[in-house]
Design a protein around this nucleic acid. Sequence first.
DNA 1: ACGATAGGAAAGCCACTGCTTGCATGTCAA
DNA 2: TTGACATGCAAGCAGTGGCTTTCCTATCGT
Lengths: 94, 94
Amino acid sequence: MGDVFKALADPTRRAILDELQDRSGQALFELCVRLTGKGFTSTRQAISQHLAVLSEAGLVVVRREGRYMFIDLDTSPLRQIYERWRVDTCESDT
Amino acid sequence: MGDVFKALADPTRRAILDELQDRSGQALFELCVRLTGKGFTSTRQAISQHLAVLSEAGLVVVRREGRYMFIDLDTSPLRQIYERWRVDTCESDT
DNA sequence: ACGATAGGAAAGCCACTGCTTGCATGTCAA
DNA sequence: TTGACATGCAAGCAGTGGCTTTCCTATCGT
């Protein structure tokens, strides 16, 4: 399984995760339209390659139906980050 | 301020954070010794450059005293990750 | 069947990143 | 003061990453 941290290193990939959190189960072309609407200039191929990385990291689950490719978010791999470094919960956030 | 995600993308930098979580406030040369003891082959310059990235991301705070450079861990920038994507707490972790 | 739509595969390019190398600076001990 | 120690700075190099480009496959509507 791939590297979760490297998967999160790219801003476009993070935007994909954001978009999927907002609405999971989108098709690839749908995702492309949504992202270009939010100012991202990535082509379909670029998004597709990003999805491959995210899928390798387990952050995304791909489900094929007919000629569509539906993408679901899976945030569970993030837990390994959350458990690795403790964050002081009571801190000066003024 | 730098990119927290990019800072976490490198395995050596993550090892530095691990080392600092285990013992914060180490000097640079101390950190180098510890890391080489754990199988990392990085030179001092490499570690120093990694620390610059971590410092840019706010994950590390540098404090100079005499000829020593003490490094403290600061995990608070990680909170923005924890708050960005919700992780299902009740999940099949069998 | 045919065209349009949704997506896949691979090669090439460019920029960035991590690392090394070499030298310079500054601090402490004797 | 002098040498040893701890670190800074910058140029150069090799590997990687993200993107484009081109072409190909497969599915649906009519």
